[in-house]
Design a protein around this nucleic acid. Structure first.
Length: 221
DNA sequence: TATATGATCCCCT
DNA sequence: GGGGATCATATAA
């Protein structure tokens, strides 16, 4: 049982440690209003946490034109282009000037499935948003949304709270595509909903440990 | 200015 | 499970 309509996650939700935000975003609903008014949404099933002391974090080497949004206070979007062809959606976390974010890697499509399929040029619902590049293509997210507010329903993008997920449903694994330092490679900062078919990665990559919110997470890097 | 690389995806085998 | 597409960005010279 939860309040209806589900509350939009406020800035205070994002202005916490990236790992905590990444964990709590699972099960929440990502909502996108397109320029023509159409609404898309999906349940977040996969996230990754990035913090400034992590060498794989885009903010690690200080502020840059690409990652400047990460240095704003939590509660806005950070969108960047990767491999010259795909976009990735992050939510900025923690306090201003820190440089932290959570990458949203996959959602389970809910509203606007047909529009997502049109944008992707495919029909398989499972493949619409299984991976960060696919998600952005389905939701029509690009650099135009970088730095935009995500804490109100008059924003182009926002997130609504969902049914809280118990820890047993959440697994933690190493992040995908990280190749900088042994510590960054090993850090289990990718969070997924267990046995959810809309999570990206191979079955091997999804063999994670049970989620254990121990304090030593915060000192892994 | 020049070069290497990447928080990826898709198609091929 | 391996390689190509494709280019903004970072870093070096």
């Amino acid at each position: 049982m939860h309040a209806y309509p589900p509350p939009v996650l406020p800035a205070s939700f994002y202005q916490r440690h990236s790992l905590t935000v990444a964990r709590d975003l699972l099960g929440c609903r990502l909502v996108r209003r397109l320029p023509d008014g159409a609404v898309l949404s999906g349940r977040i099933v996969e996230t990754e946490a990035y913090t400034p002391d992590d060498p794989s974090c885009h903010a690690h080497r200080g502020e840059s034109p690409r990652a400047r949004s990460m240095f704003q206070a939590g509660g806005i979007a950070y969108v960047y282009l990767i491999y010259g062809m795909y976009h990735c959606l992050n939510v900025v976390t923690q306090a201003a000037s820190q440089g932290a974010a959570v990458l949203i890697r996959a959602i389970e499509p809910l509203d606007g499935v047909d529009r997502m399929a049109d944008a992707r040029g495919i029909s398989s619902v499972r493949d619409l948003a299984r991976g960060p590049g696919r998600l952005c293509q389905s939701f029509q997210i690009d650099r135009a949304l970088d730095g935009t507010c995500i804490t109100a329903t008059d924003c182009p993008l926002w997130i609504q709270s969902g049914e809280p997920l118990p820890d047993v449903v959440v697994a933690q694994t190493p992040r995908i595509g990280i190749n900088v330092s042994p510590a960054a490679i090993a850090a289990p900062w990718r969070l997924i909903v267990r046995e959810n078919g809309f999570v990206s990665g191979t079955s091997r990559q999804n063999q994670g440990q049970s989620y254990t919110p121990t304090p030593d997470w915060f000192d892994r890097l």
